[in-house]
Amino acid sequence: MKLQDKMKRKAECLPALEKRQENQFKGQNGIRLCLANHEVFLGLSGYVYFIEQRLLIVSDLHLEKASFYAKSGQFLPPYDSEVTLLRLREISRILEPENIISLGDSFHDEEGPLRLSNKSRRLLHELVGEMNWTWISGNHDANLPESLGGAFMDKKTLAPFIFRHEPTKSPNSFEIAGHLHPSAHLTIRGRRVRKPCFILSKTRLILPAFGALTGGLDVSDEAFAPFITPSCHALLMGEAKLYSIPLLDCIST
């Protein structure tokens, strides 16, 4: 890419990214930025936190994914739900959110809740009790049992934001979605680096999958095409910080 193009792309970058001041919040690594005049923090472990609203967003937990495969004879390690929920509890202890939205595919399948181990069940029950929990339905878990507690919705509007599982082509409000499990790769000096990422554009934020055994889908996949604009950024999850890279660079390398 020519420097000129890079400059131009830089000029098109989101104002939000320009204004970022900090890459820490309450000791957590990530990026703090402004989305439609709301202060949010994108955490390195793949969550979004609305600071004023004390609202935590996670997506694609895929709880009980391992046991789903175990049913068909592929015995993936049965620790995924626990790992995912412990990670969530750690974040919630630090941020102390009042509300949480799980953006769909919270369970890998609708029978998932029945297969939870006692320990995972207790963990989830505690978490649901601590916060106002909203389950957005996903393609894997459209009908979760109400016994889980919390509210069940197809999508949730909190103007100027809309929260839903699958991103849509031209949303009316700023859209926050999951579903695609974005990950991006870069080829730098002959070496390939591949990481899960957020995708941020002027009208939309797509979250990476939060679940412990959830793989990523490369942003160059056709599924992403409707959501990619020249000014899109991929925020790659490194070891200690999020790296912001123009998304088109992750597709052309």
């Binding site: 870069l186 680096v193 790659l236 490194g238 790296y243």
Partner: peptide, 13 residues
């Protein structure tokens, strides 16, 4: 390291 490469890619730009 991978991290250094990522750093480089975002810094360079």
């Amino acid at each position: 390291s991978t991290e250094a490469l990522l750093e480089e890619a975002s810094q360079e730009l």
